[in-house]
Design a binder for these strands. Structure first.
Lengths: 150, 150
DNA sequence: GTCGTTCTGTTATAATATAACTCGCTTGGC
DNA sequence: GCCAAGCGAGTTATATTATAACAGAACGAC
C-alpha cells in the first residue's frame, strides 16, 4: 500500500530545500498549486487547479495558475502531461530524470517511471542530423483499479 | 535527396487503395486535407489546414477539418503530434507501426521513425497492473537544416 | 419511394493558453 | 530615509484549440 501522507511530506520537503538551494521563491500560490497536484497521483487541468484556488480565495484568473505551473515545471517539481493537456506533480523528487508516464484514461491516475535507457532512438536521431533536446513518452490505458472496476 | 513528388504519389496511392479495401470513403475534403499535410513533412495545426481549405472554397468551419482529421487518424493515414497539438501525414504507408517522432521546434519538420522495440516499459506497466492501450513518443529539438541555419 | 446511414454545412460554445498592462512588495544602493 | 530595479501577483482582454448539436444533401437497401 502506498503511504501517501509521507509521500506528500517528502515531496514538499524536497521542493522547499530545492528552491532554497537554487534561490527560487516558493510563494504561497506556487506552493498551493504544488500541494493540490500532490493530493492524488493524478493529472489535473489548469482550470481544475484554478477552480480549487478560487474556492480558497487565491489567484482568480488563468494567468495566475499558468505562471505558477510554469515556475514548477521549470523547477522540475511538476510535469506536463501532453496527451491530456494537464499537469502532474513529479513523483521522483527532482532526481534528474527523463520521465515516462502511464496514464489511466479513466481516472487520470498517473504513474511515473524512470525512462528505460534509450540509445536506439538517439542513434536514429544522430543519423538524421537531428539534435534532441527534450523527449516525451506517455502510455495511455487502464490502471489496475479501473481494470478491476470495469 | 528526398524525392518528395514520388513520396506524395506513393502516399496518395496507398491511401486510395487502403480506403477502397476497407470500404472507407476518401471524400474530396478528406483527400484535400491529406494532400495539404503531405505537401511538406511538417506538422500543421487544424486551423492552418482550415485556412487552406477556406482559400479553396472547401469546408469553412472547424468541425469540417476536425472530422476529416478524425477520419484520417482512424484510417492511420495521419498522426497527431501531441506536443504541438498538430497533425502530420503518416510517412510509413500504413504498415502497422508505433511511430516515434523527431520534431523540429523551429520549422516543425517531422521525421517519423519506427519505434525501437520496447519491452522494458511494457514490463514496468505489467508490474503495476497497468494495461497499455496506446503510447506516444515524441522528441523535440532542431533538425539538420535548422542547426545549420542557426 | 422512403428509410437509414454517412457525409457536409452551420451556429454556437467549451476548453486550453497567453498578451499586455497594473500594482505592490522587497531589496539593495545611496 | 528614499528611490529605483526586479519580481511576483492581479486583472482585462483575447488567442488558440476543440466539440456539441442540429439541419440538409447524397446514396444505397429494400
Amino acid at each position: 500500500m502506498h503511504d501517501h501522507a509521507s509521500c506528500i511530506r517528502a515531496a514538499l520537503a524536497h521542493a522547499e530545500s530545492h528552491c532554497a538551494r537554487e534561490g527560487l521563491q516558493l510563494t504561497p500560490v506556487r506552493l498551493r498549486v504544488l500541494e493540490i497536484l500532490l493530493e492524488g497521483h493524478r493529472a489535473l487541468g489548469a482550470y481544475e487547479i484554478l477552480d480549487r484556488l478560487r474556492d480558497e480565495g487565491l489567484g482568480g484568473q488563468p494567468p495566475v495558475v499558468y505562471r505558477a505551473l510554469d515556475f514548477l515545471l521549470r523547477a522540475g517539481l511538476v510535469h506536463r502531461i501532453e496527451t491530456l493537456n494537464a499537469f502532474a506533480a513529479c513523483a521522483h523528487a527532482g532526481k534528474g530524470h527523463v520521465p515516462v508516464f502511464l496514464i489511466c484514461r479513466q481516472c487520470r491516475h498517473v504513474i511515473e517511471t524512470p525512462a528505460p535507457a534509450g540509445g536506439q532512438l538517439e542513434r536514429a536521431a544522430e543519423g538524421a542530423g537531428f539534435a534532441i533536446e527534450t523527449t516525451v513518452r506517455e502510455a495511455e490505458g487502464l490502471c489496475a483499479d479501473c481494470r478491476i472496476a470495469a
